[in-house]
Simulated scan of single mutants.
Amino acid sequence: MPARERLLAAALDLFAEHGVSGTSLQMIADRLGVTKAAVYHQFPSKDDIVLAVIGPALGRLGEIAEHAESRRGSAARHEAVLAGVVDLVVGFRRVSATLSYDPVVVRLVRAHPALRDLQRIRRLLGGTAPDPGSRVRMAVIAGGLMMAGADPAVAGLDDEDFRDHLLAAGRRILRG
């Protein structure tokens, strides 16, 4: 495994154990058996490490929005968004479980350009001026899917079962 991937895996393990704020670059270096300078060689700051851990998931948001926007009709767009977001949650379960509640991650995501893609996804689900019921359903879907990925109660489900159950629940919520 390349050094960068080993560093990110070690950082994610430490974030799970201590949170982002409780993890130092020295702790990451110690876990890898390298110097702190070696960590700095890969990433200039801890925020850059966090962004590298969450970046692949955030990067998928634009792909999900583009795929959904290419569908005809609101039902097809809703299904494309729901399936894309569910696949994202399933694919990044460990990252979600580790980092969903971390205030450092929340701060970085709020400032990340991918937030625009998340807003596109919300518009695809609820339109440009959704009614109150649609806004609540979108909030339940968005929060529920992310929290489901982090919930230890479903950690034992294999990815395929987890995906199927998330899709079914999302479809029921969207039907309102």
Rank of each mutant, 00 (worst) to 15 (best):
P2H: 14
P2T: 13
A3R: 13
A3T: 15
A3I: 13
R4V: 15
R4G: 15
E5K: 09
R6L: 15
R6E: 15
L7R: 04
L7A: 05
A9F: 11
A10G: 14
A10K: 09
L12Y: 05
A16P: 07
A16Q: 10
A16K: 15
E17P: 02
E17F: 10
E17K: 12
H18A: 11
T23D: 00
S24P: 12
A29R: 01
G33W: 02
K36F: 09
A37L: 02
Y40S: 12
H41V: 14
H41S: 03
H41T: 14
K46L: 08
D47C: 13
D47T: 05
D48I: 08
I49V: 10
V50Q: 00
V50C: 07
L51N: 15
L51P: 09
A52E: 14
A52C: 09
V53R: 02
I54L: 06
P56H: 03
A57M: 11
L58P: 00
L58A: 12
G62K: 10
I64C: 06
E66Q: 07
E66T: 13
A68H: 08
E69C: 07
S70F: 08
S70Q: 05
R72E: 11
A75V: 08
A75T: 12
A80D: 05
A80L: 10
F92P: 00
R93E: 06
S96K: 01
T98Y: 00
L99D: 07
V106S: 06
V106M: 09
R107M: 05
R107T: 09
L108I: 01
V109E: 11
V109L: 11
R110F: 05
A111P: 02
A111S: 07
H112I: 02
L115Q: 15
R116A: 12
D117V: 03
L118N: 10
Q119F: 10
I121T: 08
R122A: 10
R123P: 06
R123H: 09
L124C: 03
L124E: 02
L125P: 00
G127I: 06
T128N: 13
T128S: 06
A129M: 15
P130I: 12
D131P: 11
D131F: 02
P132V: 09
G133Y: 14
G133W: 15
R135D: 06
R137N: 01
M138Y: 01
A139P: 12
A139R: 07
V140Q: 00
V140W: 04
V140T: 04
A142P: 08
G143H: 13
G144R: 13
G144L: 13
L145M: 11
L145D: 00
M147G: 03
A148P: 02
P152W: 04
P152S: 13
P152R: 15
G156V: 02
L157E: 07
L157G: 06
D158V: 09
D158Q: 08
D159C: 13
E160M: 12
D161I: 02
D161W: 08
D164M: 05
D164E: 12
L166C: 14
L167R: 13
A168H: 03
A169E: 00
R172N: 01
L174S: 09
G176N: 01
